[in-house]
Design a protein around this nucleic acid. Structure first.
Lengths: 251, 251
DNA sequence: TTAATTAATTTTGTATACAATATTTTTTAC
DNA sequence: GTAAAAAATATTGTATACAAAATTAATTAA
C-alpha cells in the first residue's frame, strides 16, 4: 500500500487514525466529504486506506461503501474497487427529470400539510444559505442549498419520498461538480425565498411552477454535450490504453 | 442453532446446501421468496442458517441482507438480526402515495416515448398475468401483476424512476400480504388492459386517471385501521413480555 | 527506446475466529 | 408452582487470514 500520504479530504486533523467510529458515523463523514466536493468524482476509495483513516477493519468500510453505492453516490466495479460516481450526461438528465416529478409532488403535499413553524424552518434554511454565500463558503453553500429541498420534503411527511429526494439532491451535487459551465450559479436563495412565499400563500400552481423553473435553471447551467469536452480531448490525443483513469489520486 | 429443520420456502430441493451461489443470485432468490410470499413478513432471517442454505459464509449473506434492507424489504434491528419487513399502516399509505406520484409521471413519459413493440411487451405481460390467475397460481400472479408496472417504467426510459418503482412495487406486495381484507382482489388484468389502450391512444389524462384509480382500488382493498386487528388481540390477551414475536418460524 | 510478456505486488472477495450482545435455559427464592 | 436472578447458549458485529483477481513493475525481444 502507498504508505506515504493517505492524504485525503476527510475533515480530520492530518493523517491520523481515529478509533471508535462506526458504520453510521463513517457513512456520514464520507457522505459529507463527497457532497462538499472534498472527494472529487472518479476518486478511488481504497478499502485499506479508509480502514486505516477511520481506525476500523475493511469489514466496516465495505458496508459503508455498499450503502453509498446503493445511493448512487459511489460506484462499485467488481474486483476493481469503489469510486466516487461520475454521472454521465444521460444520468444527469434522468436525475433532474426525477427531481422535477418528485419535488412537484412534494411541494403540493407540503402546501397541504404546512404549519407556521415549518415556514420558519424554511426561512432559517435560506438565511443560512445566504450567509454562507456571502462569506464565500462554497462547501457549506452546496450543502445548505440542498438542505432546503430536504426540509421541504420533511414537511410533506412522506419518509419514502424524502429519502428519494435526499438521494437525488446528493446526485445533483455530483452532477454540478462535473458539468457546471462557466462561473458559479447566480444566488438561488432568491428562488427559494419565492417558493416559500408561494407555499405560504397556498398557491399550489405558482409554487410548483417556481420549483420547476428553479430546477430547469439548474439544468440549464450544465454543459451536458458529449462526455464533458475535457474527456473528449483526452480520448482523441491519449495513447491507446487510456491512462486518464489512473491519474486521479486515490483516497 | 436449531439444527432441526432449517426448513424454508427458498425454492430448492429440500434442505440442501447449494454451493457456488454468489451475491446477486442469492439476492434474487431471497427477493423472489419474499415477493412471492414464501417468506412472510416478520420472519427472522438468520445469517447462519441462510449461509448454510446457500453454501456461503455469513459475509456474503450479510451483504445481501443489507441490500434488501436498503430496499426496505428487510428490516435490520442492530444486534438482533434481520427480519422480513412488516410495514405499518402509515408506511403503507406513504408507499401508495409515492406510487401515485411516480407512476403518474412514468405513464406520461411512457406515452411520449412509446414505440409499437413496447405495447406488445405490455400486452404479453397482461396475458401472462391473466393466465396465472386462471390457473390459480397465486404466487406467480403476484409477481406478474407487479411486472406490468415495472415494464411500464422501463418504457419511460428513466433508470432512476424505474428503480424507485421496483422498490415500491415490492413494498406494496408486502403491504398486501399484511393488510388485504377479505378475499382476493378482483382481476386487475382488465385495469391493466385499459391502461394499455389509453397509452396507445396517447390519451395522457385518461391513462393517468386509470392508473390513479387502479392504485386507489389497491389501497381500498386494505384494512389499515389500527395495527392489524390480529395484533391487537394478542397484545390484549397475551402475558406481559410479548411472545408474539417469537412464534414465527425462523428461516 | 518501445512493445509485449512475465513476475511481483497490491487490492478485492470470502471464510473463519473471536468479542460483544441477545436470547434461552437453569437455578434459586418465595 | 411462579417469579426473579444467574448461568449457559446462540447470534450478531468486527477483525483477521487466505484465495482470487487486477494492477503495477520488471524483464525480454524487437
Amino acid at each position: 500500500m502507498s504508505r506515504t500520504a493517505p492524504t485525503v479530504a476527510l475533515r480530520q486533523s492530518e493523517t491520523q487514525t481515529r478509533k471508535g467510529l462506526h458504520n453510521d458515523q463513517i457513512y456520514e463523514e464520507m457522505f459529507a466529504a463527497i457532497l462538499e466536493q472534498r472527494l472529487a468524482p472518479g476518486t478511488k476509495l481504497s478499502e485499506d486506506t479508509l480502514g486505516e483513516i477511520f481506525g476500523v477493519s475493511r469489514t466496516v468500510i465495505r458496508a459503508v461503501l455498499q450503502r453509498l453505492a446503493h445511493e448512487r453516490i459511489v460506484q462499485i466495479h467488481p474486483n476493481r474497487g469503489a469510486f466516487v460516481s461520475e454521472p454521465s450526461p444521460a444520468e444527469a438528465q434522468e436525475v433532474l427529470q426525477a427531481r422535477r416529478l418528485i419535488e412537484a409532488g412534494i411541494i403540493r403535499e407540503a402546501i397541504r400539510r404546512q404549519v407556521p413553524s415549518d415556514m420558519e424552518t424554511l426561512r432559517q434554511s435560506v438565511a443560512a444559505e445566504r450567509e454562507s454565500l456571502e462569506q464565500g463558503d462554497h462547501e457549506s453553500w452546496v450543502r445548505l442549498s440542498g438542505d432546503f429541498h430536504l426540509k421541504l420534503a420533511a414537511i410533506a411527511k412522506n419518509h419514502t419520498l424524502a429519502a428519494y429526494v435526499k438521494e437525488l439532491v446528493s446526485r445533483t451535487s455530483l452532477i454540478i461538480v462535473q458539468y457546471q459551465k462557466g462561473n458559479v450559479s447566480p444566488c438561488s436563495c432568491d428562488e427559494h425565498t419565492q417558493i416559500i412565499k408561494a407555499i405560504e400563500a397556498r398557491d399550489e400552481e405558482k409554487a410548483v411552477e417556481l420549483m420547476m423553473a428553479h430546477l430547469k435553471a439548474c439544468e440549464d447551467q450544465l454543459n451536458l454535450r458529449h462526455e464533458e469536452g475535457k474527456a473528449d480531448l483526452f480520448s482523441i490525443f491519449a495513447k491507446p490504453g487510456g491512462r486518464a483513469e489512473r491519474k486521479r489520486r486515490a483516497v
